[in-house]
């Protein structure tokens, strides 16, 4: 990955052309080092998804031979897939990093779940949970794995994105970001979300995972799994907590997931792609965008923008 191609493509000069992945990698590493050099108490938000896996891998590279000098934070909802919990522990251990798991105590107490509470589930576990954790541990900079290609309102977000004392994002009042000079100064009450994967696309992420052999949750690969069909989505019955509706019987289908979250809110796609190249092939030939599998985006127009202003990552 880090050895530049010696062949000069496009018949240009003898320059050793860096590939797009090498340049993206170098940029992400640069961003991470800027954060560590400037922050008092940084943390990496780790969601166990493929973007998080990439981000964690890049962090290992950025600080090698030191382990990444910050902990991982998983804002847990208790409703993630079992396989995600398994990888979470292993990934943190392999990287030599501390893992902090935060569950919103209020949501725990009220037994908030996606079946009975709808949008409140995301609000309390994720949005509120994240704010609580950042406040509790006094993290001043949090790395997030968001990419600008994910969704329109993200296209304008800065790499260093500021949050007010109550974690709100003000899209109209963002600092200009020039060259690779990040202004990391902030008042005591503000915090920063830093997005080292801003310029990566979904395809870049997959290619990088393939090239670097990064371990990801097996749910991204198809396998026979028990699912039910609800509101046009295939939902996997990951544990016994999932209530069956009238006449519903889980069926075994060869499915995989293009994105991971809370299992009752994450739609599976029918697929036979069981290897990474198969998954990439399927992605390239497919005609629906990644976020279509996430229930939360359908709530309302420009919903992500609103959620982000409120503090959702």
């Amino acid at each position: 990955m880090t050895t530049p191609e010696t062949a000069a493509p496009e018949g240009a000069d003898n320059a050793r052309m860096l590939t797009h992945l090498q340049r993206l990698e170098a940029e992400s590493i640069h961003i991470m080092r800027e954060v560590v050099a400037n922050a008092e108490n940084p943390v990496m938000l780790y969601s166990v998804g493929k973007d998080s896996a990439c981000m964690l891998h890049l962090a290992k590279k950025a600080f090698y031979p030191s382990p990444p000098p910050f902990p991982l934070l998983h804002v847990d909802t208790t409703w993630k897939f079992q396989e995600m919990y398994k990888l979470r522990e292993k990934a943190a251990k392999d990287a030599g990093m501390d893992l902090i798991v935060h569950q919103n105590p209020e949501a725990v107490e009220k037994q908030i779940n996606p079946f009975d509470h709808g949008a409140l589930h995301t609000d309390m576990w994720k949005t509120e949970g994240l704010k609580q954790a950042l406040t509790k541990y006094k993290f001043d900079v949090a790395f997030g794995g968001a990419r600008r290609d994910e969704e329109k309102s993200r296209a304008k977000e800065r790499i260093f994105s500021f949050r007010s004392a109550n974690h709100r994002w003000d899209p109209k009042n963002q600092r200009p970001e020039l060259w690779k000079l990040y202004n990391t100064r902030k008042s005591k009450t503000e915090s920063i979300r830093a997005f080292p994967l801003s310029n990566w696309t979904e395809l870049d992420i997959w290619q990088y995972i393939h090239l670097e052999g990064i371990e990801i949750v097996p749910l991204y690969f198809s396998a026979p799994r028990p699912v039910v069909e609800r509101d046009g989505m295939l939902i996997m019955v990951d544990d016994a907590r999932m209530p069956m509706q009238d006449g519903e019987v889980p069926m075994m289908k060869s499915v995989r997931f293009r994105t991971l979250g809370c299992y009752p809110l994450t739609g599976a796609v029918e697929s036979t792609a069981a290897t990474l190249p198969d998954v990439i092939q399927e992605m390239l030939l497919t005609t629906t965008s990644e976020r279509q599998g996430r229930a939360i985006d359908h709530d309302q127009a420009a919903s992500m923008e609103k959620k982000k202003q409120e503090g959702y990552f």
Binding site: H20, D149, S153, A155, K156, P176, N199, T201
Partner: peptide
């Protein structure tokens, strides 16, 4: 390409937005 809700209504882009595409040769 007109990202944020307010801009879409006004019909103008008011900030810097970054877009991505790729061909066989380049990103």
């Amino acid at each position: 390409v007109d990202g944020l809700a307010a801009e879409r209504e006004q019909g103008i882009t008011i900030d810097v937005a970054y877009r991505f595409f790729a061909t066989d040769k380049r990103k």
